[in-house]
Structure formats: C-alpha cells, structure tokens
Design a protein around this nucleic acid. Structure first.
Length: 509
DNA sequence: ATCGTTATATCGCGGTCTTT
DNA sequence: AAAGACCGCGATATAACGAT
C-alpha cells in the first residue's frame, strides 16, 4: 500500500487533512502535522473498533498522546474513520506527527477499492462515498475521544486495555459481524469483479473492434493519403520535369543568345581592334613622318646654325681683318739723329750678313751701334742731325697731307681703340697712347697767367729762382702783386689770342 | 705685346691760375 | 668740373729685329 510509505503519504495526508479540517473544524496544519499517522497493523492489533458503535474513544492513562477519531458511516457495513493524533503535552492539546496512528481497515479497503489514484477524497468522490443522509453538521458535532496509548512493540502486552468480560461479548459480536461483512463483501466483490471483468472484456472487445476499425480507416486513409501524395509527387515531379526542361530550354536559349552576343561582341572587338590598329598605324606613320620632318628640320637647323656660325666666324675673322686693315696707320718718323744712324747700321748689317739678325745678339748689336755712334765725330753727328731736320720737315708735310686725306671716321675709331687700350694701360701703369689730332691745329692759347709766367721766364731776371718749384711759387706771388693795369694788358692779349685761335679752329673745321 | 739696348722725342706730373 | 698754359724733370715711347 502506497499509503504506508512514509514519504508517499504526505500528499494524501494533505488531501485528507483538508477534508477532515473542513469536516471536523480542526486546523489543516494540525492534521498535516500528524505525519506517519497510519499503521494498519497497529490498528488491527490495538485499536480494533467495534462496528456497532460509531466511536470508541479511549484515553490512555499513561500516554500523553491521544487520538481523536471520527467515524463516518459508509453504507451499511463500512465507514470512514478520520483520525487526528493529539499530543497532550503539559496539559494542553497539540497536534504532532506520530508514527502509530489509528485507522480503520474497512475504510482503507474502501479507499483502495474505490479508486487507484491518490485524489481519493475529491469532493465528487467523497460525496459518492459518503451517504447523502449523513449531514456534515452532525458529523461535525459528533465528537469522540478515544484514547490510544503510545505504540511500541515492546509495550504490546501493556496495551491490553479493554479485555474485560464485557468486551469479550462485544468482540465476539464484532468478529461475527466482521465475518458476515467479509463474506458479503467478498461476494459483492466477486460479483463486482465478475461484472467488472465482463464489462472490461466487453470494453476491451469494443475497444479492439474500434481499434481495428480505426486502424482500417487509418490504413485506408493512409493509403488514400499515400496515393494522393504519390499523385501529388508525380504531378510535382512532372511539373518539376517540365520546369526543368523549360529552364534547360531557357538556359540553352540564353546560352545561344549569349553566344551570339559574345560573337557579336567579338566581332565588334575585332573591328575595334582593327580600327585601333589602323589608328595606331596611322599615328605611328604620322609620328614617323613627324619625326622624319623633325629630324630634317633639326638637321636643317643644325646646318643653318653651323652655317651661321661659320658665317659669323668668317664675319668675325673678316671683321678682325677689316679692323686690322682699317687700323689706322699713322705716319711715323724716327725721332732722332741717332735713330737714323741706328737704321743705317742695321741696313749695313743686313747687307753684309745677308741673313736674319739673331734676336739674342740684338743687345750686343745695339751696344755696338751705340759704341759706333759715340765714336762718330760731331761733324758726322751734325750731318745726321741735319738729315733728321730735313726728314722731319718732309714728314710734317707728309703728315699734313695724310691728315687732309685721312678718313676722319677712321681717326675716330683709332682714337677709340687707343682710349680703350689706355684704360688697361693706366691700370698697368704704362704710359698712355697719344690721341690723334690735326697737326696744324692751333694750340689753345696760353692763359693770362700762363703768358705772364712766359714773359717772366723770358726776362731772365737775376732774382728768378733757379728751381722750378720755387719759380712756380715766385710767379704766383708776383702775379698777385701785379697791378690791375698790367693784368688787363695781359687779358687783352689773351682775348686777341683766343679770337685768333677760334678763327683758325673754325677754319680747320 | 713681349724681350733686349740706345739716344732722342715726347708725354706726364707737380702747383697755380685762367678760361671755357 | 675740365682743360690748358707756364717750366723742368723724370718717365716713357720710338726705331731697328724676329720668334713667341
């Protein structure tokens, strides 16, 4: 019996507790608290309740525990006994879990026979079990206290509570009753079992039939479903096939189209390539032509440049030559009698040796010539001097002629050249070249002071200082001392001289 | 233009003044 | 500012030559 299970009874107790609480007025907690309340053998051995009375309440003199049992009539031969185990501790009643509770065998059998499930005392079932003529109020009001001693196996003998002679008769009656009840109940049970079995069989058969029918129906349904499924599948396959075929066809068509497009594109590309090639060829050709033209042009340019260079060089050369040619040759004259002698001596040397004069010996030659010049008598020297004078006069005439005929532009150029040379000459500290002028050009007249100085020098006065620098200073002082009248005479002289100079110079121009 | 030598002619420089 | 004049002295150009 599951109810024996210590752990398994908890929910049952709960269930019973709820009902008992409702019917007895005892709190649920109090009922619940009496876990392990039930032991069948305990009841049968110690608490056999008489079936003629609804309650047997005994109070144990020793134990502090007492059980409260209420019996509910269940038909003619059965009743339910709801028990609560009360613990009497120090004068007050409390609920407590106790191992040895009391229950009726009948009620248990009743429970077990009625239902298998644990929800034994649901309201509906309870109502079925409990007769309708029994009111809950009466149940509630009926209070029986039945003392039960603490249950211990060792104390079994001490638990011989009501074994008196009075109880013997009662027990006999009880036994007889129980026997009759058992017999009748057994019969009933057998009958019930038989009927139940028959019913079960019928039910089983019906169930079997139903099942078979259902199975058949199911089979038919399944077959139908299968058929339909197969049909659907076939149709689906067919449609799929069709679709696939269509797709394939489409694909093929598309492929064909693509191929055509590709071919077209290839053709286009080829055309484009050809066009590009043509273009590139044209471009190349044009480039080549351009390059050739460029080369030709460059060559021409080079030629032109070279020609120009040549021309310029030639021009330069010619210019130089021209300059050299046009370089003004100014007539020169040996500037002394000794120069004439030197010239003659070199002429003699040339005639005698009939060879070029060695440059290394030129110094010696010059020295020899000089020695010869010194050996010459004064008469001989005079001859050379007269010669020189004549030559100079002739040279002057030639010079005047040259000046008259010479191109004045050339003279200007020559003067420029000389001035340019003079720039470098100044830096080098070399004497500058003289600028060409008209040899007959009148000299700028001496200034008023210059004329005075000339006169002073020509006077040969004994007071005149011999040193040039002293003479210059003396002249300056004298000029300052000179009276204005005399100065004016010099000024007049200068004016006349300047007039003459200007007239002559204007005529020359 | 340079190198060398020589006598001679010429030029430049110095300070001062005048003229253009 | 530039140029020229005065004078004497000193410096320089000049001619000859020819290779460099």
């Amino acid at each position: 019996m599951r109810i024996k299970n210590k752990e398994g009874i908890i929910h049952k107790v709960r269930a019973i507790g709820a009902k008992t609480s409702a019917r007895t007025g005892i709190s649920i907690d109090a009922i619940i608290a009496q876990a392990n309340w039930f032991r069948y053998y305990m009841f049968s051995s110690y608490c056999r309740l008489p079936n003629d009375s609804y309650s047997n309440i005994t109070e144990s003199p020793k134990s502090t525990i007492s059980a409260a049992i209420r019996y509910y009539p269940m038909g003619q031969h059965s009743f339910i006994a709801y028990t609560t185990v009360l613990c009497r501790n120090s004068g007050r009643l409390t609920t407590c879990g106790y191992e040895n509770s009391i229950f009726t065998a009948i009620s248990i059998k009743c429970f077990s026979s009625k239902s298998k499930d644990t929800n034994l005392l649901d309201d509906d079932k309870f109502n079925q079990i409990i007769p309708k003529n029994v009111s809950i109020k009466s149940l509630k009001t009926s209070k029986y206290i039945y003392g039960v001693p603490t249950v211990k196996e060792s104390n079994k003998d001490n638990f011989q509570i009501n074994k008196s002679n009075e109880n013997k008769e009662f027990l006999k009656k009880k036994e007889l009753l129980l026997c009759s009840l058992k017999k009748s109940k057994l019969l009933e049970i057998q009958k019930l079992r038989a009927s139940k079995q028959a019913q079960d069989r019928k039910l089983k058969e019906a169930k079997l039939l139903k099942d078979q029918k259902l199975k058949k129906a199911k089979l038919i349904k399944d077959q139908k479903i299968k058929k339909t499924k197969l049909l659907i599948a076939q149709k689906f396959k067919e449609t799929e096939l069709l679709l696939v075929q269509k797709i394939k066809k489409d694909k093929l068509l598309e492929a064909k189209k693509l191929k055509i497009i590709k071919l077209l594109e290839l053709a286009k590309d080829q055309k484009l390539k050809e066009a590009k090639l043509l273009r590139s060829q044209k471009i190349k050709a044009s480039n080549l032509a351009k390059a050739q033209t460029l080369k030709i042009k460059l060559a021409q340019k080079k030629r032109i440049i070279t020609q120009k260079k040549k021309v310029s060089l030639e021009k330069l050369k010619s210019h130089k030559k021209l300059i050299a040619r046009t370089r003004l040759v100014v007539p020169t004259l040996i500037n002394s009698a000794y120069g004439l002698f030197n010239q003659d001596e070199y002429k003699k040397l040339k005639d005698n040796t009939s060879s070029t004069i060695d440059q290394k010996n030129i110094v010696k030659n010059n020295l020899k010539i000089l020695a010869n010049w010194r050996l010459k008598t004064e008469a001989e020297k005079l001859e050379y001097e007269q010669k020189y004078k004549l030559l100079k006069e002739q040279f002057n005439i030639e010079l005047y002629k040259w000046w008259d005929n010479v191109d004045k532009n050339l003279v200007q150029l020559e003067n420029r050249r000389r001035k340019n040379i003079n720039k470098t000459r100044k830096d080098k500290g070399i004497r500058s070249l003289s600028i060409l002028e008209d040899p007959r050009a009148p000299k700028f007249p001496a200034s008023v002071y210059a004329m005075f100085v000339k006169d002073l020098k020509e006077s040969n006065h004994p007071e005149l200082p011999t040193k040039w620098i002293d003479f210059v200073k003396y002249a300056g002082a004298k000029w300052k001392q000179l009276p204005e009248i005399e100065k004016n005479t010099y000024r007049d002289k200068y004016k006349d001289a300047f007039k003459l100079y200007k007239e002559v110079s204007d005529n020359c121009k």
